[in-house]
Amino acid sequence: MGKSILTVDDSASIRQMVSFTLKGAGYDITEAVDGKQGLDKAQAGRFDLILTDQNMPNMDGLTLIKSLRALPAYRSVPILVLTTEAGDSMKAQGKAAGATGWLVKPFDPQKLIEVVRKVIG
């Protein structure tokens, strides 16, 4: 069984790209379109890694991370923020929310695989 990853992004193209890339690398991927759905899906399943966009309708990435960290099942599951904002404040906020790391958008598929491998193998 491949490891399972939840990718949360309101952009269908990014979601599909992430999904396609990581599926190609042998992971099981579940997609969610915003933080709210991400949280629901995370609670409904078990994931080894969560990739989330920062800026999304309904619930943004940081709120999602905070909510996940409040759940026992996700206290230590790695969460990466996919963001176009790589500034300090994002990093500080990301860290404070409990994210494991970040990946700057735009990124290429190879980079994504590389980072995901680093995190969950």
Binding site: P78, K91, T100, G101, W102, V104, V115, V119, I120
Partner: peptide
Amino acid sequence: LPAAQEKAQIEADNGFGFFIDESELPA
């Protein structure tokens, strides 16, 4: 620069980084 970046700096120029000690990562 946030202190958190100590570890991340090396990787930050690659466009990603980790907030925790990398050795903690399972993989």
